[in-house]
Design a protein around this nucleic acid. Structure first.
Length: 527
RNA sequence: GCGCACGUAGCUCAGUUGGAUAGAGCACGAGCCUUCUAAGCUUGGGGUCGGGGGUUCGAAUCCUCCCGUGCGCGCCA
């Protein structure tokens, strides 16, 4: 609808030599102001006025004069130069048939150039179970991968397992101490209850005095931890295609290869026994004790991804933002186009319980497990809660409210709309014998809903293509709201059923279902 | 101190490339079930969009300064 109006305007301006170069300024927007009687409007006259040094009203009048002949379209000029469009009801109402006939409501999102895309998310260190601090990134990353798949891309969901380096050493040390010294306490080591559980198992299998450095022990413990990590993921239906182990980089000599290449690039310097890369600023690759830094292995990891994929997406907590320039600088030196590396920074979600902020430290064992939260409030509420907010927004999550609202959560509002429609449709034989009359729906509630339905494609573009799930979440809420209002005002199952209304709610249900599916939220048939 | 974000109703958050009179949920006040599910509807109060300045026909949105909050500034990962 919007695009066709845009085309009309461009068409009307094309002959004018003065503006023919300015046609990309043309835009049409949906009218949202209640007191203005218009479906869409354009501000092109005001934009051109400046460039041409003319009165915007005159320009608008000219455009409107040319557009007047279009069928089913009423154009008006308003101060200080808006062009308002009113579309005939029957034309707008046709969206109902479009939706019901459509085999896939999301075809508009399909890309013409499918790419191989790697989406890496969560990637929490394998030193403990996932806690609530990982929830936002988990749900966001999963949905981003899904949106890309819907666009038609070939997506690999990946979890990077940091099974190399100090943290793992400390984990093993913690377990060792837990077995041999019940009273151990150290700010530097891990102390959660899960350590005790694993320690018990380790002791059973390996005895008290095992050698912490053997591969066997490490593998055993790592498997235990990875199993813990997968519990909430299974619960949330988050499935990874690939678990990339940091140690595999060494087994394949990938790190040393990268270091060699960097050395050849003349972008490395030696300083106090360490090798540094001239990245955004000098960054250590090899410590003076000969160990690789996280940066060095991470570069090798990213090179792997850049080689094998057209686009590489990292979903990172916002606390990693300072690391971005470094990794990009490194990849640039290695000859990769960092335009293909897309880093999504997710702001922290603070968690409160009884008005107090909950600290989330795996090491101190002071955290609420993601699985605990999931069980308390349920998948649907959890998905909706995280997906309804912009990733750039810091947000506060009050556990008490979340649990209290379990029965009263906004997500149920949307699901309830879906279930209510289902109940109506169940009592109808079907629509095959009734032809939809596009002129029949004139109730204000009906107009509101139809306007929302006409919006759906635009919402899909903004949400799915631009990877902004919260736009879809908020749209669904608005659509549900319009429906509930309608439902309260209108009786469907009367003696003489108006099947046009049934067409309408059926289309609404189809859109709700589509949207809820998108966000990994169930669309129940009854509640 | 430097860097990256954020600041919208009492609370939690929307606000689509700058558009016309600022939005929702929760909370609070008042109504609505003899009727398709009241997990619902209707209605009221509640705002200097952190503050100043600037750009523009037009700013919550862009620029700048200030204030506030979060995060980051390791030979940690």
């Amino acid at each position: 609808m919007k695009d066709s109006l845009k085309k009309l305007i461009i068409e009307s301006l094309k002959d004018d030599l003065e503006v023919s170069e300015l046609l990309d300024l043309v835009e049409v927007q949906q009218s949202t102001t209640k007191h203005i009687k218009a479906d869409y409007f354009s501000n092109i006259a005001m934009k051109l006025a400046k460039k041409l040094n003319k009165d915007p009203i005159d320009i608008a009048d000219k455009i409107v004069a040319k557009l007047q002949s279009s069928e089913g379209l009423i154009c008006e000029v308003a101060q200080p130069g808006y062009i308002n469009f009113l579309i005939e009801e029957s034309q707008k109402n046709h969206i109902i048939i479009d939706i019901l006939d459509s085999e896939d409501l999301l075809t508009i999102c399909k890309t013409k150039k499918p790419k191989k895309i790697n989406v890496e998310f969560i990637s929490a260190n394998p030193t403990g179970p996932l806690h609530v601090g990982h929830g936002r990134g988990a749900i966001y990353g999963n949905i981003i991968a899904k949106f890309l798949q819907i666009q038609g891309h070939n997506v690999v969901k990946e979890y990077y397992v940091n099974d190399f380096g100090n943290q793992i050493k400390k984990l093993l040390e913690s377990i060792f101490l837990c077995i041999n010294d019940n009273q151990y306490k150290s700010d530097d080591l891990y102390q959660g209850d899960y350590i005790k559980t694993i320690a018990t198992d380790v002791e059973k299998k390996f005895g008290k005095n095992f050698n912490k450095d053997t591969k066997k022990i490490k593998k055993y413990v790592l498997e235990k931890i990875m199993r813990l990590i997968q519990i909430p993921l299974k619960g949330l239906n988050i499935v990874f295609d690939n678990w990339f182990y940091e140690t595999s980089l060494f087994e394949n000599n990938l790190v040393i290869n990268i270091i060699n290449k960097l050395n050849e690039s003349n972008q490395t310097v030696e300083s106090e026994g360490a090798i540094m890369l001239k990245a955004d600023e000098p960054r250590v690759l090899i410590k003076s004790n000969g160990e690789y830094t996280y940066f060095a292995t991470d570069l090798a990891y990213h090179v792997q991804k850049m080689k094998n994929f057209d686009t590489v997406i990292n979903i990172w907590g916002a606390d990693h933002h300072g690391y971005t320039p470094r990794i990009k600088a490194g990849l640039k030196i290695l000859g990769y186009d960092v335009k293909n590396l897309d880093i999504h920074l997710i702001q922290f979600a603070n968690l409160y319980r009884r008005g107090k902020k909950i600290s989330m430290s795996t090491r101190k064992g002071d955290f609420v497990e993601l699985e605990t939260l999931r069980k308390e409030i349920g998948n649907d509420a959890m998905n909706f809660f995280y997906l309804t907010k912009n990733k750039d927004q810091h947000l506060d999550f009050d556990l008490d409210v979340a649990v209290k609202e379990n029965k009263n959560n906004p997500v149920y509002y949307i699901q309830y709309a879906h279930a209510r429609i289902e109940k109506i449709l169940n009592k109808i034989d079907g629509l095959n014998n009734y032809k939809f009359n596009p002129n029949a729906l004139n109730h204000q509630n009906e107009k509101d809903i139809i306007s929302q339905l006409n919006n759906f494609n635009e919402i899909c573009k903004n949400s799915i293509i631009k990877l902004q799930p919260h736009i879809m979440a908020n749209y669904l809420h608005k659509l549900a709201q319009d429906f509930h209002s309608y439902y309260a005002n209108v009786k469907f199952l009367t003696e003489k059923i108006d099947y046009n209304k049934i067409y309408l709610v059926k289309a609404v249900q189809k859109v709700l279902k589509c949207g809820l599916d998108l966000l990994n939220i169930k669309a129940p048939k009854e509640m």
